[in-house]
Amino acid sequence: MDETGKELVLALYDYQEKSPREVTMKKGDILTLLNSTNKDWWKVEVKITVNGKTYERQGAVPAAYVKKL
């Protein structure tokens, strides 16, 4: 869990989004888990830093590609 009490997951593999509802992640990324009720796809929040600014993006990733921490 992070400092706000939200559950975290670890990306076990790289994943490139294939639709606007998904998010890209790299192996080793730590993501915030938002919903894991679907056994195949979990909704997560990814933090992306671009030019020193951090953005948050929500989307789905394959459940088999992440592990709860």
Rank of each mutant, 00 (worst) to 15 (best):
M1I: 12
M1T: 13
M1Q: 13
D2F: 13
D2G: 14
E3P: 13
E3F: 13
E3C: 15
E3H: 14
E3V: 13
T4G: 13
T4H: 13
T4N: 12
T4W: 12
G5L: 11
G5F: 12
K6Q: 11
E7W: 12
E7D: 10
L8G: 01
L8P: 03
V9E: 00
V9N: 01
V9T: 01
L10Y: 10
L10V: 15
A11D: 01
L12S: 02
L12N: 01
D14W: 06
D14N: 07
D14C: 07
Y15F: 06
Y15R: 00
Q16R: 10
Q16M: 12
E17I: 06
E17Y: 04
K18Y: 04
S19N: 11
P20M: 08
R21I: 10
E22R: 05
T24F: 04
T24Q: 02
T24G: 08
T24N: 04
K26H: 09
K27H: 05
G28L: 03
D29E: 09
D29F: 06
D29N: 05
I30K: 04
I30D: 01
I30Q: 03
I30P: 00
L31Q: 00
L31D: 00
T32L: 14
T32N: 06
L33K: 00
L34G: 01
N35V: 06
S36H: 07
S36G: 10
T37V: 09
T37Q: 11
N38K: 06
N38D: 15
N38E: 10
K39P: 14
K39W: 06
K39D: 10
D40A: 10
D40L: 13
D40Q: 11
W41K: 01
W42S: 00
W42D: 00
K43M: 15
V44F: 02
V44K: 00
V44R: 00
V46P: 00
V46S: 06
V46W: 06
V46M: 09
V46R: 09
K47T: 14
K47I: 12
I48T: 09
I48V: 13
T49D: 08
V50W: 08
V50S: 09
V50T: 08
V50D: 08
V50Y: 09
V50E: 11
V50Q: 09
N51R: 08
N51C: 11
G52V: 03
K53S: 10
K53F: 12
K53A: 10
T54H: 08
Y55Q: 08
Y55E: 08
E56R: 15
E56N: 15
Q58N: 07
Q58E: 08
G59A: 04
G59H: 01
G59P: 01
A60S: 14
V61H: 01
V61C: 06
P62D: 03
Y65R: 05
Y65Q: 03
V66I: 07
V66K: 00
K67C: 15
K67R: 14
K67A: 10
K67L: 11
K68L: 14
K68S: 06
